[in-house]
């Protein structure tokens, strides 16, 4: 081992195209696979929290199921769903007279396919999280607003949402920390540890897969640790900025 100073940092940030591509992929998947789903999860939780008598326990169980199963198992299964000739998705498309999608054979559809799996796996978890947050809001607060003549829209945006901000912060922060370290699902879906890193045209190469490739397939531990540090600072910065934004909204 020799001392190289900032050589690795300079190489990574200035000349490493793989690294920048992996960051782009990671951010794409963070938004499409981890963050946008909160817009679906929160309304689902509100529906789950309305006065539906039957099946509430069943729904909660069903929504939670994807979260407890191994990422590798579900990635294998979805790999089958995304098969371009025999997969379930293309079969449904053919029934609807839509064109076949090449999924993992076409760089343009690799990330959307991974995002579909991520949504499937995490929407339920986020829904249950928001549901628990909604349950902790005192009923009297909403009742008294109704008595004063507030409509549903007003109640949701001016009473429920502000009270949910700590839960939103927690749920979204978890999504960010998880999303920035995305590894299992894209790795399995794009061909595993022996395949081309990140699949066709490295379209599914996340920063963590790149870290693994650099460190454990190419044996460059120094550069691998450099990636860790850069990613660490990115994650911390995003979380801090996000916290600041929410605090401003809350005030």
């Amino acid at each position: 081992m020799e001392y190289v100073g900032f050589k690795n940092f300079i190489y990574l940030l200035k000349r490493d195209d793989f690294f920048w591509k992996s960051l782009y992929n990671t951010f794409f998947l963070l938004i499409a696979g981890s963050l946008l789903q909160h817009i679906i999860a929160l309304p689902l939780a509100v529906i789950l929290n309305t006065k539906i008598n039957r099946g509430k326990e069943f729904f909660k169980t069903a929504y939670f199921l994807p979260y407890i199963t191994s990422s590798v198992s579900v990635a294998f299964l979805f790999g089958y769903f995304f098969d371009r000739n025999f997969g379930l998705f293309n079969y449904i498309f053919s029934l609807l007279n839509l064109p076949k999608i090449m999924w993992f054979s076409d760089p343009a559809t690799v990330k959307p396919a991974i995002a579909i799996l991520l949504n499937w796996r995490w929407i339920g978890w986020n829904t249950i999280l928001y549901f628990a947050g909604l349950q902790s809001i005192p009923e009297e607060l909403i009742e008294s607003a109704k008595v004063e003549g507030a409509n549903q829209y007003y109640i949701f945006f001016h009473i429920i949402l502000p009270l949910l901000i700590p839960v939103i912060f927690f749920a979204v922060s978890l999504s960010i920390i998880f999303g920035m370290q995305l590894f299992d699902e894209p790795l399995i879906l794009t061909g595993g540890v022996r395949g081309n890193p990140g699949g066709v045209d490295n379209a599914g190469l996340t920063t963590l897969i790149y870290l693994y490739t650099v460190g454990f397939r190419w044996g460059k531990f120094g550069l691998g640790c450099t990636i860790s540090w850069v990613l660490f600072f990115i994650i911390i910065s995003i979380t801090v900025v996000f916290k600041k934004i929410l605090e401003r909204i809350q005030n």
Partner: peptide
């Protein structure tokens, strides 16, 4: 709505 979404979650298993 809840039922359809839950089928979407359970079916893969």
């Amino acid at each position: 709505i809840l039922l359809i979404v839950s089928i979407f979650f359970v079916y893969p298993f």
